[in-house]
Simulated scan of single mutants.
Amino acid sequence: MDVLIHILVALHIIGIASLLGGFLTQMKAMGQGTARFVPAMLHGALTMLVTGVALVGLHQAEGHTVNNIKIGVKLALLIVILGLVYVKRDDETVDKRLFGLVGLLTVANIFIAVLWT
């Protein structure tokens, strides 16, 4: 079971890297007002959702305690990110503020994961 959990954690990190990497590659375009949500951002957010839910389920199945408030906050942020990216994925350009919000929520999700103990 530990191997499966480690694989899911690695996939979860790949998902966040894809989401954040997609955002960072569009930073210059955001400054010019031509940023768009790239497919890597959508795929990264979906990967995070699936692996995150699986990780919580596996931890609870093993009898470990899970901080449900932390998981709920992270899930809420991820659902907002996923919703914004999914709805605006086909738009040629996305408003700077909306694009920046996705980046801010992504970074907030990372800091919550690392710092909230």
Rank of each mutant, 00 (worst) to 15 (best):
V3G: 11
V3A: 15
H6T: 13
H6D: 14
V9M: 13
V9E: 14
H12C: 08
H12Y: 08
I14M: 15
I16F: 11
G21F: 13
L24G: 00
T25R: 10
T25D: 07
M27L: 06
K28S: 07
K28C: 00
M30L: 06
Q32S: 07
G33N: 05
G33E: 01
G33W: 01
T34W: 02
T34V: 07
A35K: 10
A35M: 09
V38G: 06
V38N: 10
P39M: 09
P39N: 06
A40T: 11
M41P: 03
M41L: 10
M41I: 10
H43W: 15
A45S: 15
L46H: 13
L46C: 13
L46W: 12
T47I: 15
T47H: 13
L49I: 12
V50M: 08
G52N: 08
V53K: 05
A54V: 06
A54I: 04
L55H: 04
V56C: 12
L58M: 13
L58N: 03
H59S: 09
Q60R: 04
Q60W: 02
A61V: 06
E62N: 11
G63P: 01
T65A: 14
V66D: 02
V66A: 03
I69W: 10
I69Y: 07
K70Y: 02
I71E: 10
G72V: 10
V73K: 06
V73N: 04
K74Q: 10
L75F: 10
A76K: 00
L77V: 05
V80G: 00
I81V: 14
G83L: 08
L84I: 14
L84Y: 04
L84T: 11
V85S: 07
Y86L: 06
K88T: 00
R89L: 03
D91G: 02
D91P: 00
D91M: 02
E92F: 00
T93K: 12
T93G: 01
V94K: 08
D95W: 00
D95H: 04
K96Q: 08
L98R: 06
F99D: 03
G100K: 10
L101P: 02
L104N: 03
L104G: 07
L105S: 13
T106K: 01
A108L: 15
N109H: 06
I110F: 05
I110Q: 07
I110P: 03
I110G: 05
F111E: 09
I112S: 05
I112A: 09
A113P: 06
L115N: 11
T117R: 13
T117Y: 13
